[in-house]
Nucleic acid binder design. Structure first.
Length: 458
RNA sequence: GGCAGGGUGGCUCAGUGGUACGGCGGAGGACUGCAAAUCCUUUAUUCGCGAGUUCGAUUCUCGCCCCUGCCUCCA
């Protein structure tokens, strides 16, 4: 059954739905970014990569996409880290945002249309909080904090599929003195001495975490927009609270489709900073090309858990090498746009099923190799091959460089290859094999082809 | 405890009411002086367990076992 039109799994309804944007031809998409106090780990990478693929596919479908991904650049952890390091908060967040971009670029992620920072949207946040206070959805507690009254919002719990009473019965939340309800959350936090703060109708303070996303998404995309995404762990309470704030303050529906990606696990356990079982993108980058990490992620559907391991990364590298091998045989890349195979398109249209899309890519890859072997025409398949790899954001490097990157003395290798080929011509295979073994010991593999001998680093 | 998502070959990962996609790995073959790469063949009578519905279930229903996540900050 071919899927001609995009169907997405909407966390809000718990089912797959045909995707129909609010405005035909246009998509507004907001993805929760990161809190910038440290380097990104593999879990963050998954959000970046998967929503990058979604972004690319939406564009391919012909939509004009307004893709917004925020930076949380003020919060407790940031302040604590800045104090630890003895630097200003902004110095820390600027540094981490730059690092974020380096990592995202390395992973081959396109830049979003907008990357708003919380600290640059104080006016919007304060306006939204004021609206909530004015219409009775928020109140000023004895502590001076402004809190959101969850009981005043009838739809609370719709996204996470919970109701307030259930949440409270199993709640681990400490009951705060000033709260009218244990689930009430902070909209505006009164400043403590020495903390960064902004002026507001409720005195000096700073915004709560949830309000920034409500305010920034609506500021860039309007009170109603199409897609809101992020990691599964943000579903509750973060996204639930975003909905409560935005719908109570504005008149729109807020986000209509909610997309949540699964976690990255280590030994079947969630990778997280609190558990300390995480690898940063940079650490992985020392052992694997970032594109291997991307390939690894594409092999699993975005909503499923993804178990990170060296074995899995090695397998991803082997598969990616095979694609690069084909790219190398094809030679110069022919740019193409919408030549993806039908099965690839069907897979992507079915809630961005990248594992199935990869299967479609490998089908074409195999056919190309076969036809290249037999000398048949591959032009149509080549266009499809590159259209699909571009859509997935893989095979973006020069194929020759992919295999020959690293610390190698190419001139010396070429010289040895010449020497070996002379030996082969002289049928001195002992000498020829000795040279090959010598290079193999250095991780250089020789390949004798119809057009001479090539080499690659493994 | 409540809610959510899982358990598919050596590993990994899709999928479907009619005996299972792809990748990695293994085996055999073609090619090669030998390799490497590539191609071909092959690698699950079987989809956690038990029952039910059905002509037929891995796919639907029920029960059970196990795993993970969320319910607090977390992508």
């Amino acid at each position: 059954m071919k899927q001609q039109h995009l169907v997405v799994y909407n966390s809000l309804t718990g089912s797959k739905q045909a995707f129909e944007p609010l405005v035909p031809g246009q998509v507004g998409m907001y993805v929760c970014g990161v809190t910038v106090y440290d380097y990104c780990h593999v879990g963050h990478a998954r959000v970046m990569v998967m929503f990058d693929v979604i972004y690319r596919w939406l564009i391919n479908l012909g939509y004009t996409v307004n893709y917004v991904r925020n930076f949380t650049d003020v919060d407790d952890k940031i302040i604590a880290r800045a104090n630890e390091r003895g630097i200003e908060m902004n110095a820390l967040t600027d540094e981490m945002i730059e690092a974020f971009h380096v990592d995202a670029d390395a992973l081959g992620c396109l830049r979003p249309s907008h990357e708003p920072r919380a600290t640059l949207h104080m006016d919007e946040m304060i306006a939204m909080i004021r609206a909530l206070v004015d219409n009775g959805h928020a109140y000023v507690a004895d502590s001076g904090d402004v809190l959101y009254a969850v009981r005043k919002f009838s739809g609370y719990g719709q996204l996470s599929g919970k109701n307030i009473d259930e949440l409270e019965s199993g709640s681990r939340v400490e009951v705060d003195e000033g709260k009218r309800d244990p689930l009430d959350f902070v909209l505006w936090k009164k400043a403590k001495p020495g903390e960064p703060s902004w002026d507001s109708p409720w005195g000096e303070g700073r915004p709560g975490w949830h309000i920034e996303c409500s305010a920034m998404s609506c500021a860039h995309l309007g009170d109603s927009f199409d897609i809101h995404g992020g990691g599964m762990d943000l579903k509750f309470p973060h996204h639930e609270n975003e909905i409560a704030q935005a719908r109570a303050a504005n008149h729109g529906d807020f986000a209509r489709y909610w997309l949540h990606n699964g976690f990255v696990n280590i030994n079947a356990e969630k990778m997280s900073k609190s558990l300390g079982n995480f690898f940063t993108i940079r650490e992985i980058g020392e052992r694997y090309h970032p594109e291997v990490l991307r390939m690894f992620m594409l092999g699993t559907h975005y909503r499923s858990p993804l178990d990170f391991s060296d074995v899995a990364m090695d397998a991803a590298k082997a598969g990616l090498d095979r694609l690069y091998e084909t790219a190398r045989r094809l030679g110069l890349k022919q740019h193409s746009s919408d030549n993806v195979s039908d099965s690839f398109a069907a897979a992507m249209n079915d809630d961005f099923n990248t594992p199935e899309a990869l299967a479609a890519l490998f089908d074409v890859c195999r056919r190309i190799n076969k036809n290249l072997d037999s000398g048949a025409d591959v032009s149509a398949d080549m266009a499809a091959f590159y259209a699909m790899t571009d859509m997935l954001g893989i095979v973006q490097q020069d194929a020759q460089a992919w295999f020959q990157a690293g610390d190698v003395d190419a001139a010396r290798i070429e010289a040895l290859i010449d020497e070996r080929n002379q030996a082969r011509k002289d049928r001195d295979f002992a000498r020829a094999d000795a040279i090959r073994d010598e290079l193999a010991a250095e991780g250089i593999v020789l390949e004798d082809g119809a057009n001479g001998t090539g080499w690659k680093k493994v």
